[in-house]
């Protein structure tokens, strides 16, 4: 049974309709001790079905340690939202989702896809100016729950 109802799928299709450059959802999974890895893969599959520019790229956290390290994955399920530079090379802005994208996180994931595709942060010009002062590696973690 699909995760998305027909009206939800229509809404996702609408939200992602503006995506016009390739976005890859790098998905870290593991075979054991990951209750929601299978569900996450199915959700991502349903999302990419709605938008030809969006794809899923699965890696096994346990078996593919080099790629897991490249994306900084330390747990599963996890998703990196990776875009494309104008020259066609990978552009990884450093956006990660740790845990299944359910509830609020699902709409956050869709928003991340559209923003990575457009490279538009959606911040005010004042905020963008302030952030230009950040010149050292900075991590932001936001703890959330599905409801």
């Amino acid at each position: 049974m699909p995760f998305l109802s027909d009206p939800e799928r229509a809404e996702v299709t609408k939200m992602l309709s503006g995506v016009d450059s390739p976005v890859r959802l790098v998905f870290a999974t593991q075979t054991f001790s990951c209750e929601l890895c299978g569900d996450t893969r199915r959700i991502l599959d349903e999302v990419v079905e709605t938008q030809p520019h969006v794809s899923v790229d699965e890696l096994n956290l346990v078996l593919d340690t080099a790629r897991a390290a490249e994306y900084g994955f330390s747990g599963a399920p996890a998703i990196a939202v990776v875009g494309t530079d104008p020259d066609g090379s990978e552009w990884d802005p450093g956006i990660r989702f740790l845990g299944a994208p359910l509830g609020y996180e699902f709409s956050n994931l869709l928003e991340a896809i559209t923003r990575v595709a457009s490279r538009e942060a959606g911040l005010s010009p004042a905020s963008v100016d302030k952030l230009a002062h950040v010149t050292k590696p900075t991590t932001i973690q936001v703890f959330s729950t599905p409801t």
Partner: peptide
């Protein structure tokens, strides 16, 4: 320089 991670707390 900034990375952002959403962590599903439960």
């Amino acid at each position: 320089h900034i990375t952002a991670t959403v962590v599903e707390a439960t």
